[in-house]
Design a protein around this nucleic acid. Structure first.
Lengths: 308, 308
DNA sequence: CGCAACGGTCCATATTGTGGACCACGGATC
DNA sequence: GATCCGTGGTCCACAATATGGACCGTTGCG
């Protein structure tokens, strides 16, 4: 019990360009990495719910580029949980409409309610998303690379926006919905580096077991990366998550000055030699400041508590 | 236990126009109506999950027009469940990021993950939503009233789209995310009327207890409404859900010919005398056929199963 | 024809979620 | 300022609930 829970994201990001992979190339994940706040410190009585929510997210992420959906087998494999459990949860999710099952293939994908929830959530004032879209587009256009918005959630970073640049190179290392411990990836590292030393200690402690599944991201390495990021003024991911995929990120601060998100740009290694890095960082910083300003504005223009 | 579970929707749709309601006017719901498939027939082993999902939806619906969020008290009241339970579930939802709690007011609203899920779900091929947007806009424009897309989910209908017309009158009887048993409301009734008699029997049986909370929608009344709808060629809701709020709906059939959704238009009673009804019905039918055609097209242009 | 992988089901077990009772707080009202 | 109500939040004995290993029926490959 309480072993490796759940899973995630780019475990299995199918290499898209070559459609010629033999059937031998298993699409399934070979590692199961945690997808949620470290399971250990959960005090309370709701693990079935937490498992369900994690699985829901997992269905969304895995089925993202597959209209067919995800197979039960793959979900059990990736989530690292017994098949019967996964299925029981899936049945519940289907019953509520958050997941639907393809009657033909028996595969699972997000359902009606997931869309409704999104509609409801989108309708809500999503200040950050709102404020960042323009910036993302501008960055993607001028850099010609793929741009991301990573939002801090506890000790983890969640990719909430992704904007393709006009360039020919597509990046599959990060997609909307992916979640990684703070420090893994450029945007995530940018947020981490912007935290206080005390907060960093907490984060590292909290994500320790999760990070066990990311080779080469032990505490010391991460602290080193934080130091470098602070010195340089930007966070650089030199291909340590996925070989050959580099990225550069800077933090975004909310109205209260807390680093709540990050902008990042990803591309191939060749695009990240020092002079280009500085140029990119300047661009990102400008946009990050612009988002911060927008957040500040929208904050003070809403002192309304309760009804007029 | 297993008494009235959960709740919904337009229980408490605050009358928006008059901002001058004394503090005496409680905003909270006074009735708790079921929000999910009838709880009785749930085979099992996942009621905590189902409760969590229902609550999640509830947070979304109730907090829709309130950036502040919903209070714990209101959620317990509307959901009809013990406060401790509601809170425990909310904590789990918050921990996973699907709900967030305003640190100032302690109110709950949809969180980051809800938006992510929506993004993921929207990215998915949402044929129906895609095919209907244009139609909804056209109907709203020509009718000058508010137009809805209601999707069938089991024995219930869920409002998934809503398009305001240019007219001055706003309708607050139905909003995205609301769920009612089939037969309650114009669109919902349109779907029901398009089902086979056997299916209608099943639906009525399945929603019997739920409909207990909708006064004046017993089996006989509904069968009568179905007969009338079939005769007229459209479903008319003559203000029986919310007094003064009338609506007219027609079913939408998928590629296989099954009634999976409905288009409907809502407005004040004065706009629904027989000649206008026929005119409206004709308009809706045209658009319904157009959506059906689009669905058929998108269906046959996607025979791709598996990878090339 | 066996083998492996698939989706799906069963059911004894104890872990998990349950919810009534309780506390502290804040703002009306007397 | 004493009293009341409603709020958000916590506790914990209890048993209903979720759990997951074992199992079944199919399918498709070698």
């Amino acid at each position: 019990m309480m072993a490796g829970v759940s899973a995630n994201a780019d475990a299995q990001r199918s290499a898209a360009p070559p459609p010629e992979l033999g059937r031998a190339a298993r699409r399934s994940a070979s590692w199961t990495i945690a997808h949620t706040a470290d399971e250990a410190d959960r005090p309370s009585g709701s693990q079935s719910i937490q498992r369900a929510l994690v699985l829901l997210n997992l269905v969304g992420v895995l089925a993202r580029d597959r209209p067919e959906g995800v197979s039960l087998a793959e979900l059990t494999r990736v989530s690292g949980r017994p098949k019967a459990s996964v299925r029981r949860v899936l049945v519940a999710l289907v019953a509520e409409g958050y997941v639907e099952q393809d009657p033909g293939t028996a595969c699972y994908r997000l359902g009606l309610q997931a869309g409704v929830l999104g509609e409801l959530a989108g309708h809500r004032a999503d200040d950050l998303g709102e404020a960042s879209t323009d910036s993302l587009i501008r960055i993607a256009d001028t850099s010609t690379d793929t741009t991301f918005l990573t939002v801090r959630h506890g000790s983890y970073g969640v990719c909430t926006r992704r904007q393709e640049g006009p360039g020919p190179i597509r990046n599959y290392a990060l997609a909307v919905g992916d979640r990684h411990p703070l420090g893994i990836g450029a945007g995530s590292l940018a947020v981490l580096s912007a935290l206080s030393d005390d907060d960093i200690d907490d984060v590292l402690a909290s994500t320790a077991t999760t990070r066990g599944h990311y080779p080469g991201f032990d505490d010391e390495t991460l602290r080193g990366l934080v130091r470098r990021s602070r010195r340089d003024g930007y966070a650089l991911n030199d291909g340590r998550v996925i070989a050959g995929s580099w990225a550069l990120g800077v933090p975004v601060h909310d109205a209260a000055g807390r680093p709540v998100a990050a902008l990042s740009v990803a591309g191939i290694a060749e695009r990240f030699d020092p002079p280009q890095c500085d140029e990119l960082a300047a661009l990102l910083h400008t946009e990050a400041r612009s988002i911060h300003a927008a957040l500040t504005r929208s904050q003070e223009s809403r002192p309304v508590r309760g009804r007029p």
